[in-house]
């Protein structure tokens, strides 16, 4: 089975926000909710500035606090290694939302928790996740960590990749590569 992961090459993000809305349309996310976002982080003082743009989404952590927090196994690890939600089992207790340090989740209008699925339905059809497909800068790169020839594997071999809140110990599967300012954020 694959081990899906995403590498985000922050240097190539042009902040177009296409991913944010493509995700919403692809997954019919209700108004007011988002499964992915773009963070713009500026450091320094005029005129010595540095800015990083990075997209964020569910990290599909290998050690997923949301799965632990779930009382019904609605949040679970799918066979492809991604973290998924079985909506018919979700009681909407919101424990997973408080467990996730990446703010990946929200409660959708039917009362169940929701988040990025890595576009599982598209993966099954052999397509890329919608956000990756439409990423203008090709900043989002998706692939299988078990395939040494995949672009993600190659990038992770050759670059210092960072993950968000590494010290939280969740082992995220979303990696950030910043070629201009190596070493992450």
């Amino acid at each position: 089975m694959p081990r899906y992961a995403m590498v985000i090459d922050v240097e190539k993000c042009v902040g177009c926000m296409a991913c944010v809305i493509a995700c919403k349309k692809e997954n019919k996310v209700a108004e007011g909710y988002f499964r992915t976002r773009v963070v713009e982080e500026v450091r320094g003082e005029f005129p010595n500035l540095r800015m990083e743009l990075r997209s964020e989404l569910c990290n599909h952590c290998e050690i997923a606090p949301c799965i632990d927090a779930c009382p019904t196994r609605a949040s679970h690890r799918a066979k492809d290694g991604t973290v998924q939600i079985d909506h018919k089992k979700c009681i909407g207790c919101k424990a997973c939302i408080l467990a996730c340090p990446y703010d990946a989740r929200y409660i959708r209008p039917d009362g169940t928790a929701d988040k990025c699925t890595f576009c599982q339905h598209r993966l099954k059809e052999g397509k890329l996740p919608a956000c990756v497909e439409t990423c203008l800068g090709k900043s989002r790169i998706f692939g299988d960590l078990d395939d040494p020839e995949s672009e993600v594997s190659k990038l992770l071999r050759t670059h210092d990749a960072a993950v968000r809140l590494e010290w939280a110990g969740t082992k995220p599967r979303i990696f950030y590569v910043n070629k201009r300012f190596p070493g992450g954020f």
């Binding site: 927090a69 009382p71 019904t72 089992k89 009681i91 207790c93 169940t112």
Partner: peptide, 23 residues
């Protein structure tokens, strides 16, 4: 009253999750 999909609550009784305090 706080949980948002209580009609799914029976799923809680079909399993026990030792790491889940909700469980």
């Amino acid at each position: 009253l706080e949980i948002k999909a209580p009609w799914h609550l029976y799923w809680g009784y079909l399993t026990f999750q030792p790491l889940s305090l909700m469980s």
